[in-house]
């Protein structure tokens, strides 16, 4: 492991030297020439990271080669199970190298094929995907995480989970700071029905037997649907046994400023940060 790190470091140094040497030439040429000096070793870090031209070139390549499945904006196409690539960094905690390998090797057992791109082209794609990847909360203002723990347990834990404590009716919030901006988090607390995370759509179920059940919709076809009910149990129904009504409002109550102040929300987020060891 140490050896590998030394190789990466030394080749990276070479790269930097080469870049400096060729700085006067055009950026495109620079990218190519720099690459010559580093291609002998497997890179863990994108050698083109932060390079705006590489990002741009990667975007061009992406729209030509990848957008058919993943969409021009890289947010995926649900009907063909092509994943949202803007979300993959936070959802799967991929490294640049892992994304590089997936592009080059494909994913066995799926329709994601291996690709015959040059290494430079793959790194350009990685640069582009980084540039469109969602980012989390940066510089979370410090607040009372002890108060946040109390507030979380009183208001959130019934439905939401942080680490392994809490419910499953709403999304797991362990990664909320890595996934969303502070503005997005605030909006989802103040107006939870404005944007409901996929898999958490509120539904009402009226069964022929007279049962009235609330829950969140997990799956549905023409004949059946599958929910997590407010008892937090998996339940499935056939449509001739029950009527499914989608609710416009989320099961999550809206917290106005008067019910949960900005400072209290920050306290909760500080608690989540400390409970999960999150460093957004």
């Amino acid at each position: 492991m140490l050896l590998l790190q030394q190789i990466v470091t030394s080749s990276f140094t070479l790269f930097r030297i080469a870049c400096r040497a060729y700085r006067p030439t055009s950026a495109i040429v620079l990218v190519g020439l720099c690459w010559v000096s580093i291609s002998a070793h497997a890179q863990e870090i994108n050698p083109l990271a932060g390079n705006a031209r590489a990002q741009y070139a990667g975007g061009v390549l992406f729209r030509a080669q990848c957008a058919t499945c993943h969409g021009a904006d890289a947010t995926g196409i649900e009907s063909i199970d092509a994943p949202d690539l803007t979300a993959m960094w936070r959802e799967r905690a991929y490294s640049d190298r892992q994304v590089f390998d997936i592009i080059r090797d494909g994913i066995a057992g799926t329709i994601m094929p291996p690709h015959d791109f040059t290494e430079t082209e793959v790194w350009m794609l990685v640069s582009f995907l980084r540039s469109v990847g969602e980012s989390g909360v940066e510089n979370l203002p410090v607040a009372d995480s002890g108060l946040g723990a109390t507030l979380f347990n009183n208001h959130c834990a019934e439905c939401h989970r942080v680490t392994n404590a809490g419910g499953v009716l709403g999304p797991n919030l362990s990664d909320v700071l890595r996934r969303n901006s502070l503005a997005d988090i605030t909006a989802s607390v103040r107006q939870p029905s404005a944007l409901i995370t996929s898999g958490y759509k509120a539904v009402r179920v009226n069964t022929n037997a007279g049962e009235n059940i609330q829950g969140v919709l997990k799956n549905e076809d023409a004949f059946s649907f599958q929910i997590v009910d407010t008892n937090q149990q998996l339940r499935a129904f056939r449509k001739h046994d029950a009527v499914l009504t989608e609710q416009r409002e989320s099961l999550m109550p809206a917290f106005a400023e008067s019910e949960l102040s900005e400072q209290e929300l920050l306290a909760i987020l500080n608690y989540i940060q400390s409970a999960t060891g999150a460093t957004p």
Binding site: D221, S224, Q226, A236
Partner: peptide, 8 residues
């Protein structure tokens, strides 16, 4: 779901 074969 064992009745329909649909996933949760």
């Amino acid at each position: 779901d064992a009745r329909s074969g649909r996933s949760f």
